[in-house]
Amino acid sequence: MKRLGFGVLALLLVALPPLLPERHLATFVLLTLAAAVTVGVSLLMGYAGQVSLGQASFYAIGAYTAGLLAVHGTPPLLGLLAAPVIAAVAAVLLGAPLLRLRGHHLAFATLAVQLILLSLLAQADWAGGAIGLQGIPRFSVGGFELRNDLGYAYLSCGVLAIALLVARNVVASRAGRGLRAAATSEVAAAASGVAVGGYRLAVFALSAAFAGLAGGVYAFYLGYLAPGSFPVLLSIEYVVMAVVGGLGTIAGPVVGATVIVLLVQVLNTLGTQPGMPDYAPTVLNYAVYALLLVVCVLFLPKGLVPALDRVRRGSLDKARSIR
């Protein structure tokens, strides 16, 4: 059943992009990148019990790493590979003190980190300052340049696939068992030899690496980066996607990201209808996140994927009992 799910997803990711019209392809790329970031957020929240309200900072760090390296003549592939590494290193440096904080404290601390990062980026002339970093070359490997959106759609699909695969492998490994154990009883996990603090830091770094990698693709895709591209709302969006999709599930982030992105698209269309005030899209965006979170916590506390699983299993049981 699990394998089937992966197969369907893979098929969808491969077959869908060429069928999409150009203007929807951009949405597809951003959706896929957001899903990759959300895989990390879901891992962090679902398995390490930590909430990060600053995940977009790692997305930004990855994007700026790739962008700056490429602007200074480094081969794009190296820049893209450096993006997750630098993001993970940043997460370790930040996480060592931050992960001592628990629950809401960590959430606020990561939020603060992002605000600080945005303000630093806006003042950093070497990174383009508030105007932004321009002239990032297109992504290329050994003379082959990725020009059109279709190429980036596949590149971001690759990133998402890597994130999903790594997340799945980690969860089903010795380290993942240690993490899941620590989620119910930290004391018993530690007594079994699980270095709980170290593990949480590692998951934080891993989630940052996913965000960094996605950020790297984003930099090459847009060719332009500004602090304004990474608002706090983006971080909140990842959390909402993770919660709506279902924490601690592998498919959850993909489902969550899809639902949210499509919903936002619809609302944007609605908000930009003639006669709507110009603040309508923003207001609608914020409102929909808030509403979705509330509805999800009230009616689907475990998220969409586990809920759908239950429905499916329920109907199977019914079918069996009828037989």
């Binding site: 980690v170 068992r177 240690g178 989620a183 030899g193």
Partner: peptide, 25 residues
């Protein structure tokens, strides 16, 4: 440990004797 099978619970016990980390997994 909740959300894990009995076998997985016991496998966590082996943590102390083994070393495969995140990267290996």
């Amino acid at each position: 440990f909740h959300g894990m099978t009995a076998l997985e619970n016991v496998m966590v016990g082996a943590h102390a004797t083994n070393g495969a980390g995140f990267l290996a997994g």
